[in-house]
Computed example of a mutant assay.
Amino acid sequence: MNDIIIIGGGIAGLSAAARLSADATVTLIEAEKALGYHASGRSAALIEQNYGAPSVQALNRASVSYLRDGGYLSPRGLMIVADEHEEDAFNADVTVMGVDPITQAEAMAFVPILDPAKIAFAAYHEDAQDIDTDRLLQDFARVLRGNGGTILTGQRVQAIRHDTSGWEVDAGTQTLRAKMLVNAAGAWADELATMAGIAPLGITPHRRSMARIATPGGHDPARWPMFFGVGETWYAKPDAGALLISPADEDPVPPQDAWPDDMVLAEGLDRYQNMVAEPLTRPIATWAGLRSFAPDRTLVLGPDPAQPDFIWCAGQGGYGFQTCAAASQLVADLTLGRASKLDAQTVAALRPDRLRL
């Protein structure tokens, strides 16, 4: 019998499995044939410490040293741009995001394709950084295996049962047993909980559409920052010599292998086009991912109050990579009954207990 079964092979499940495997026998089950296939494989791969709810920001701050010391980060920067009609929304973003206003000339120096006739306001934050998401996933998997843990891919969970000795999980052709069960199923977290006889928490997947285009005007975007429209109505990010553009959509959808909404994507591309001087070219590729949120839009980490041997590791909402170091440590601490280094207010804001009131 395992000590712990973890269901879900994205960054949430892998990082939690790696942490727990230092002190427990862990098996991770992933329905797809590859790890990090769904949301983790479609991430914008950026850490911005001032991004998200207060509890998310606390996890960001507690994770950054792990990511930096591990060599997972590289400079990127973040910039917000606005036209003359968006001054109030721009000022609100400056306050929330903790970015510094810059001149139009400075904005043009960062991203030379911007249209000087449209850029009335801009702000910049240097300390936004790219995350090497692929290496991070691989390293957590390596730690898990190095500690004697097991990874099973292509094994879809078909049934979950609970008795006095723990959990029994039918996955693929196997039946596995463990004392504790960790729900890191991402968009499927509520469905998995229901299968296990646990009341769902209202975790809802939201679609985010993406397009990849050739860099406009033949520019080299390697040193460009990620740049946003006000209110995050669109964003663009350099990526391996090309440009990723998203309408930053958040449309609720059922759990699925997501695909882009062409109309929503076209609207986002148009908002981007309105702020740049270079004409938009046909996308090289389009795709979509799911960002799954709890009702209060912060992560759900720790034992279910009604069934303490069922552990939630869900609701990452697009913050999975940037919070993974601290979130996985908290899951391990709460699962194994250890004190967390995070402050009590942050821990309380992340525990599932808050959603069972």
Results as ranks from 00 to 15, higher is better:
residue 259 W to E: 03
residue 310 F to K: 01
residue 249 D to Y: 10
residue 228 F to Q: 00
residue 302 G to T: 01
residue 299 L to K: 08
residue 253 V to I: 08
residue 297 R to N: 11
residue 237 K to E: 05
residue 260 P to K: 14
residue 217 G to H: 05
residue 253 V to R: 06
residue 302 G to Y: 02
residue 265 L to A: 11
residue 302 G to K: 03
residue 203 I to T: 12
residue 251 D to L: 09
residue 199 A to V: 11
residue 306 A to C: 06
residue 215 T to N: 10
residue 260 P to I: 11
residue 272 Y to H: 12
residue 280 L to S: 10
residue 205 P to W: 12
residue 212 R to N: 11
residue 288 A to M: 02
residue 253 V to P: 01
residue 228 F to I: 00
residue 262 D to I: 05
residue 298 T to W: 02
residue 247 P to I: 09
residue 303 P to Q: 14
residue 301 L to H: 07
residue 290 L to C: 08
residue 203 I to Y: 15
residue 294 A to S: 15
residue 229 G to P: 00
residue 250 E to Q: 08
residue 253 V to F: 08
residue 205 P to V: 11
residue 301 L to S: 06
residue 209 S to W: 08
residue 256 Q to P: 00
residue 302 G to H: 01
residue 268 G to L: 09
residue 228 F to C: 01
residue 248 A to L: 01
residue 260 P to C: 14
residue 309 D to Y: 10
residue 285 A to Y: 14
residue 310 F to V: 01
residue 210 M to V: 09
residue 307 Q to K: 11
residue 246 S to D: 01
residue 208 R to S: 13
residue 266 A to Q: 06
residue 210 M to P: 02
residue 236 A to F: 12
residue 233 T to E: 03
residue 230 V to S: 06
residue 229 G to Q: 02
residue 270 D to V: 03
residue 290 L to G: 07
residue 309 D to S: 15
residue 282 R to H: 15
residue 233 T to R: 09
residue 222 A to W: 03
residue 228 F to E: 00
residue 276 V to M: 07
residue 216 P to H: 12
residue 295 P to G: 04
residue 210 M to T: 06
residue 258 A to F: 05
residue 270 D to P: 00
residue 220 D to L: 09
residue 229 G to T: 01
residue 273 Q to A: 15
residue 240 A to I: 00
residue 305 P to R: 07
residue 267 E to S: 09
residue 236 A to D: 04
residue 257 D to V: 05
residue 267 E to L: 09
residue 228 F to K: 01
residue 271 R to F: 05
residue 250 E to P: 00
residue 270 D to N: 13
residue 245 I to A: 07
residue 212 R to C: 09
residue 237 K to Q: 07
residue 208 R to W: 13
residue 231 G to M: 06
residue 281 T to Y: 03
residue 238 P to I: 14
residue 270 D to F: 15
residue 300 V to H: 02
residue 220 D to Q: 08
residue 202 G to T: 08
residue 281 T to A: 15
residue 237 K to F: 07
residue 223 R to F: 13
residue 276 V to T: 08
residue 295 P to I: 05
residue 287 W to Y: 13
residue 228 F to L: 04
residue 238 P to N: 12
residue 289 G to S: 03
residue 243 L to P: 00
residue 303 P to S: 13
